[in-house]
Each structure stands twice: as C-alpha cells, then as structure tokens.
Computed example of a mutant assay.
Amino acid sequence: MSWKAVFESVQSLTEDVLLTPYNALRTMELDNWWMANFVSWILMAIGFVAFIYWMGELKKYDDNDEEDKTSTSHSFLGK
C-alpha cells in the first residue's frame, strides 16, 4: 500500500461519505435559500446560546468574588 492510496482513500471517505449532506444542500441552493443556509443558521444559534451561557457563568463567578485579582502579568502594571 502506497502513500498515494492512503491519501486517495481519505479523499474518497471525505467526499463520498462525510460531505454528502453538504452536497445535498448545495443542489438546493438555487431553489430555496433558507434550506441552503440551514446549517449556517443552526451553527449561529448554537454559538449564540453558548455565548449567553458563558457570559452567565462569568457573571456568576464575578458576583461570588472567586477570582484572584491580586496578581498581574507584568510587574509594572501594579500590585
């Protein structure tokens, strides 16, 4: 088995199996804009929810004063 065969098998797996849903969405692009961008909308929604959750967690730790704010990264910034 050569390296070329390994890379061709990875290419075949990626194009024929893993990217099949995206190929189906690409064929719908001219027919329905909303269906073509469905994956983008879902990823944006997941990112928005994760951002809101993370900001809530940071607020919770800030309200509890659990963060050690005594040290600085450089000595010239103060104590």
Score class of each variant (00 low, 15 high):
1 M>D: 10
1 M>A: 14
2 S>P: 03
3 W>H: 07
6 V>D: 06
6 V>Y: 15
7 F>I: 12
9 S>Y: 10
9 S>P: 02
11 Q>E: 12
13 L>Y: 11
13 L>I: 07
13 L>G: 05
13 L>V: 08
15 E>H: 04
16 D>H: 03
16 D>A: 06
19 L>P: 04
20 T>P: 02
20 T>A: 15
20 T>S: 13
23 N>G: 10
24 A>F: 09
25 L>D: 00
28 M>T: 04
29 E>W: 05
29 E>G: 01
29 E>T: 03
31 D>R: 11
32 N>T: 01
32 N>R: 02
32 N>D: 03
33 W>G: 00
34 W>R: 06
35 M>G: 00
36 A>K: 00
38 F>Q: 11
41 W>K: 05
42 I>L: 15
42 I>G: 02
44 M>S: 05
44 M>N: 08
44 M>A: 07
45 A>F: 15
46 I>N: 05
46 I>G: 03
47 G>L: 09
47 G>V: 04
48 F>S: 14
49 V>H: 06
49 V>T: 11
51 F>Y: 13
53 Y>N: 04
54 W>L: 11
55 M>F: 09
55 M>P: 00
56 G>I: 10
62 D>I: 02
64 N>G: 02
64 N>F: 07
65 D>K: 15
66 E>A: 07
67 E>Y: 10
69 K>T: 06
69 K>R: 12
72 T>S: 06
73 S>L: 14
74 H>S: 07
75 S>A: 02
75 S>K: 05
76 F>Y: 12
78 G>Q: 02
78 G>M: 04
79 K>S: 14
